[in-house]
Structures are given as structure tokens and as C-alpha cells.
Nucleic acid binder design. Structure first.
Lengths: 208, 208
DNA sequence: ATCGTAGCAAGAACGCGTTACAGTTTCGGA
DNA sequence: TCCGAAACTGTAACGCGTTCTTGCTACGAT
């Protein structure tokens, strides 16, 4: 769990080419194993063999299995963000655009359920180092949602993004643990977006 | 991870007195160890010794360490709910009452950080069996919030409770993993309650 | 070119959740 | 009261994440 005296990711990245290659071989190996067999199939010994690297070397680059998989997820989020940049979300209101973003992300995850489960499981239980892969994931998600909310007050916008982020993580965990179906993940995310952003959706008897 | 052929919690509860006693000794032992040393200190061998029970016996009652700790959390939620029944939440609007409920829960967790961390960690990674301890926790939380939302449309109320539940779990996980401070858990929960329930709070430039 | 240091390979070792097993005790029904 | 089944005990064993050890290799500075 803890990692006291080692020094992974030496400060910035004065990495040699060999080191960069090793690091990405490890990430690629983890991605492959996770896609094929899910979290349990990502065994560190197998990652080492698949990446053609020594077991101990993995721990020089990633402080734990969960951090390794979280780094894979950061990669994934970055790619999604890029695709989203090239192909902007549909919708005329913030609520529908945000819902579109979230549902696209869900479809992307749904396409590889084993990988998705592995990544979510790792994400939900890996300690956040400052500037570590978790914050990277958060940044990508934020960057995908924020532009859809142009016309909102800045503070409210931050709050809304925060809440949506929570719903995102928690629904995925709910799916991972069998509490809800995958279809409900997308549905609840859309629901939350409308609840937070779409006044017409909140047609309730108001006490004020 | 998986538990194929065993039969824990035999259907309903035709338990003998000895069995009830054993089961609650195990829960008490897990609670004690978690309070004192957190998740890692809850070692199944130690639980067995502390509860004066054989290691294998624990697995007859609880399919895994996480399920055991989730059962502890179900107990905890039940007690909180009871206290809340005797001492109803303060506030004149749904938003403030809900915020009061959530903040009381936070204070209760904050009083025993090691226990709280252990329970949240278990909760976030234990598989949901139907009618298992996770749904029990969910029921307690729902029961504490629902009465504060009397005057809302039923469907919207369900949605709001769902979203708050997600924010609750996700903020706690964020705290557990060092992404946010404990004070932010309470603060973000209050923020979400107001964002979802308090129209005055949402003083944004509205695009509609 | 070379020397010292940091990185790496290979694999053994450790810790703890979980399972398996053999012998003993408890329990409900006849 | 007695019997067979189910539960329990005590303990060994297994799997996998993580750490440690020992010897080797690559690399930047001189």
C-alpha cells in the first residue's frame, strides 16, 4: 500500500529513450491484459513478462498496480478528450451537450467492459499523489465538460462540474460492484445533467 | 473475490443463539480493529482471534473481508438513522435539512477517522449481493434523507436522492484517497444539497 | 576511454486474503 | 436419549501484490 523510500517518476522526466520505451511497454501491457481479462488478469508478474521488463522495474515507474492502471485510464481519458475535440458534442443547451459528452464516454467504456471495470476499480482505490495520474484523469474530464457551460456563473459552474464528477465516479463504481446496470450509468448521468442544468426538468412543487 | 459453493447467512436467519453470538462477536472484533488501526489492521486472522472464532468460520458468515466491513457499516448507518429519528434535523427548507443530515453523518465519521476510512474503502469495493449489506446501507441513507423532501414531486425526489447518494460516496472516496480534505466532504455535500434543492442558490444567467 | 552511480534483470521472500482439509462439537428430529 | 448432518476448530496451503537481494548494464561527467 505504501511506498516510502522509492522515487518513481524522477521529478520531471529526464528519461532516456530506453526508459520512455520501457514505461510505455508497461502501460501497453497493462492495457492489453486488462482488456482481455479485466482487473484480476493484470497480474504484475504477467505485466512484467508481457512488457519484457523485470517485475521490480514496474515498481520504479508506478508505485502500485492501481497507480499503473490509473495511468492507463489517464491515457484513455486523454484520447477521449482528443476525439471529443475533433467531434464536438451535439445539443443546443448546456444540459443536452453535457449529457452527450457523458454518454459518449459511457459508450466508449461499454465497448470494452473488462477494461472499463479494471480501470474504475483501480481509480476508486488508488491514493492520490499530487500531480499523479488521478488528477490527470480529473483534468481531462473537467476539460470535456467545462466548455459546454459557457454561459454560467463561474462559481456555480465549478460546483456543477464537481457534482457531475462525483456522479460519474459513483455510478461507475455502482456498476462495477453490480449495484446498477450499465444502462443506468448513462441514464443517471443524463438525469443528473438535466437536474443540475435544465430548469424545465425540475417541474416540482416549490416550497419557497 | 468469488465465492461459489458456500452458503453464508442461511437464507433467512434460523440461527441458534450461539450463532448469533458468534456473528456479532465477529462484527464487534472487526469494528474494534478498524477503529484502532484502520483497514489494514483488520486482518482476518486477528479478527478470528479477537472474536474467539476460527478463521474459516468468519467466511461462513461473511463472504469476504470487504463484506464484513460493509456489514459493520450497515450497523453504523442503522445507529445513525436511529439517533436521527430521536433528534430530527434542523432547518426550515429541504435544502438546509438535508444539509444538516449529511453534515451530522460527516461529523460522526470524522470522530473516528480510521474506522471511517476502513468502512468507506470496504464499501467502495465490495460486490453487491442482492439484499446484502450494501443495499442495507443504501436503505438507511435513503430513509434519512427522504423525509426531508416531503413537498417534492416523487420522481424528482428519487432523482435528487440518487444524486446525493452518489456525491456522498464519491466525496468519501475522494477523502479516503487523499484527493480532498475531510472538511471538503461536508462542504461539497452541503453545496450539492443547495444546488439541487435551493433555487435561490442557483443565481446563474439562465440560457433558456 | 573510463569510472562511479543509478537503473535494471532475475528471482527469492514476505504478508495477508482466501481456500482446503481432517478431526471435533453442536443441534434438531426421531 | 441417540444419530446423522451441519457447523466449528485449528492449521496448512495457495495466489498475488509488494519488497528485497545480488549481480549486471547503461549512461553522463570527467
Amino acid at each position: 500500500m505504501l511506498n516510502s523510500r522509492r522515487m518513481p517518476q524522477p521529478a520531471a522526466q529526464p528519461m532516456t529513450a530506453n526508459q520512455r520505451a520501457r514505461r510505455s511497454r508497461v502501460i501497453a501491457a497493462a492495457l492489453k491484459l486488462a482488456s482481455e481479462g479485466g482487473y484480476d488478469a493484470v497480474q504484475m508478474r504477467d505485466v512484467a513478462v508481457t512488457a519484457d521488463v523485470a517485475l521490480g522495474t514496474i515498481y520504479r515507474y508506478f508505485p502500485s498496480k492501481d497507480m499503473l492502471l490509473t495511468s492507463v485510464m489517464a491515457d484513455w481519458a486523454g484520447q477521449l478528450r482528443e476525439r471529443l475535440g475533433q467531434n464536438p458534442p451535439h445539443g443546443t443547451t448546456p444540459a443536452t451537450r453535457v449529457a452527450d459528452v457523458l454518454q459518449r464516454a459511457c459508450r466508449s467504456l461499454e465497448r470494452e467492459p473488462l477494461l472499463a471495470a479494471a480501470l474504475v476499480r483501480a481509480l476508486s482505490s488508488s491514493e492520490a499523489r499530487d500531480g499523479g495520474p488521478i488528477s490527470e484523469v480529473g483534468l481531462h474530464i473537467r476539460a470535456m465538460i467545462e466548455p459546454q457551460l459557457d454561459d454560467l456563473d463561474a462559481e456555480i459552474r465549478e460546483d456543477i462540474i464537481t457534482v457531475i464528477g462525483h456522479v460519474w465516479l459513483s455510478t461507475l463504481i455502482g456498476w462495477l460492484n453490480g449495484r446498477i446496470q450499465f444502462s443506468q450509468v448513462a441514464q443517471q448521468l443524463g438525469m443528473a445533467a438535466h437536474l443540475l442544468l435544465d430548469d424545465d426538468y425540475r417541474r416540482r412543487a416549490d416550497p419557497t
